[in-house]
Design a protein around this nucleic acid. Structure first.
Lengths: 350, 350
DNA sequence: GTGAAAGCGCTAACAA
DNA sequence: TTGTTAGCGCTTTCAC
């Protein structure tokens, strides 16, 4: 396969415009110290010849790569894709990330990295060395993985940490998980519920504890006890089932449940059905995430809506700003979650 | 932001192993004409130093970029992402494409390109010039866009055409749409249906006509007429509603409908409900696509399952083979669709 | 089978 | 403000 070398290079443009390579380079990179007249002449040649700089060459010569790397957990992401359970986390990241990247002439690359594996370091170093990205976006649970975080810091690559509040290095962004947990609980309390149970996510995700704290805070604000109202899940449907069974088998069962993600909320629905409990009359259920499927469950779930696209978009913007030498924000960026009321919540019966 | 130049380069490895750059390069690229003993020595140094070649440098020096570009329709993809209707087409492409790429040391980049716009050419050229991908994967409707196809051909970049049978240039792959259309129809006929209606997709997608042909063939095989049983949709929910209304308002209404995608099938369910028709007793519905949401509809939809991941995976493999100088296959590759029976199909009442 | 030299397309640093 | 020079890290010649 004969490699077709770049058709139009900076040389062609320089020749066409009758200037040096450097001047063309300056125009491409919108550098100052170019007379408007020159800049116009060069731009005209660029347009005429349809010149586009080669990313590889730009990278090689020590400039930027115009690449931002989004890193997700390999195991969970592949499992989600295979299961086809309708999680659109990756899609929303791409939506927010790619569009924002495009605004700045950047591209977004998506990669999967193991969390648990002992060769995270090698794997990540390889990706960074091969790609030389200008920035990296970390998602949970990577965002708080000390190995990954310190590696990125060492490489001096600007990086965003979605779902983290770690302030020492990188740029943390959260979706206001604690407040969202409190809001969900408050919504149920407003409806008249006093026994609001909570199914947590795995400890590996820091946001699991934030969501739980939000629930506890809201309950405490109203003087309601949380005794026997907490079950520990791990985001899987099965753990949601177990948690629901555990909560609903009690003599004084809760009248409402907040589940830390969609699959566990759907599991609650299933268990309720098995037990002959009508949702929302006998049991209200609130879910975290608001992936597409929860609007189609029976009944459709009231849910906390995670602004993934918007958060990713801001992450890109902050990374590029950091790359341009701007200060990073004063504290963690919070992109507040939304709340969508559907039919799975109602006042408690009686 | 100080750029940290590559830590370990080919030079370091060469020095460490006491050989020339050339020999290291040969080892990296698994070229012949290296004594096993040399190769081992060099490999040891590579491992010791944790050397990873820079993609940019490899590309620069005329070798490959190890990048495969997957191109989707911008408008539709963004609309799907925004709508959050649970289509996981992109995810399945990434699943199949990224994993297969990784096997060969390649990476997959995902890009959006306008179909209708008159600057497709400029946009695509820019992407190709900037990225210099070793191959491109086209999806419908790009796969049959003459501008895109000829541009890629001109650039001598190996490219796969998913959902196309165009044999002149590129590597076409289909998911056996005609057969799938026939299978879906046959399933209904086997249940006892004679009046099986069909809602087509837009003409812009060639596979729309294939699916329709499959339906017509199956009906013809049994001597059933298709008169007044065809409605033209455009893959949107709204067009599905209109088509369903048109079909079900007839005096002698069909007892079953095959819809060319999920949204239109869901629309059929909604219209049936409005008309007081019980699915599947009064009306059977089969959907194309089998995205996650159709398992959660009421009732869950019987559906043709598109093997998107597998098709993308094969596309990657064929592109890399082509890049390596292998012949392309004798004819279009067919990755046959599956069929999932759920609760939306049953024998006709009475 | 191995090495030396040239150059890919671009930008940093310096000179004019 | 503009141009010149020297690489970036790698692979391609082409010698040896």
């Amino acid at each position: 396969m004969a490699r077709v070398r770049q058709a139009v290079t900076i040389k062609h443009v320089a020749a066409d415009a009758g200037v040096s390579l450097q001047t063309v380079s300056r125009v491409i990179n919108k550098e100052p110290n170019v007379r408007p007249q020159m800049q116009e002449r060069v731009q005209a040649s660029i347009d005429k010849l349809g010149y586009v700089p080669s990313l590889a060459a730009q990278r090689m010569s020590g400039s930027r790569s115009y690449l931002i790397l989004a890193l997700n957990d390999r195991e969970r992401t592949i499992a989600d894709w295979r299961a086809r359970e309708g999680s659109d986390w990756v899609d929303q990241m791409l939506l927010g990330g790619m569009l924002k990247c495009a605004e700045f002439g950047y591209r977004m690359m998506f990669e999967l990295v193991d969390t648990h594996n002992d060769h995270v370091e090698r794997e990540l170093t390889a990706a960074i060395t091969a790609l030389q990205p200008d920035g990296v976006i970390l998602t949970p649970p990577h965002s708080d993985n000390p190995l990954i975080v310190s590696l990125l810091d060492k490489h001096k690559i600007p990086f965003a940490r979605i779902g983290s509040a770690g302030w020492a290095v990188g740029i943390p962004l959260t979706m206001g998980d604690e407040q969202a947990g409190a809001d969900a609980t408050q919504h149920l309390i407003d409806l008249g519920h006093e026994k609001v149970a909570f199914i947590s996510g795995p400890d590996e995700y820091i946001l699991s504890s934030w969501r739980k704290t939000g629930w506890q805070r809201a309950m405490a604000d109203f003087g309601y006890s949380t005794d026997n109202l907490l079950a520990n899940g791990d985001f899987s449907f099965e753990s949601g089932r177990e948690s629901a069974l555990q909560l609903l088998d009690k003599a004084a069962r809760p009248t409402a449940i907040v589940a830390s993600n969609d699959q566990m909320a759907l599991a609650c629905l299933e268990v309720a059905r098995e037990k002959g409990l009508i949702v929302p009359d006998d049991l209200s259920v609130v879910s975290f995430d608001n992936t597409p499927i929860v609007a189609l469950s029976d009944p459709p779930l009231t849910a906390v809506d995670q602004p993934i696209a918007e958060t990713t978009s801001q992450a890109v913007e902050l990374i590029i700003a950091a790359k341009n030498g701007n200060e990073k924000p004063d504290g963690p960026i919070v992109v507040p979650a939304g709340f969508v009321v559907r039919s799975s919540t109602a006042p408690p019966r009686g």
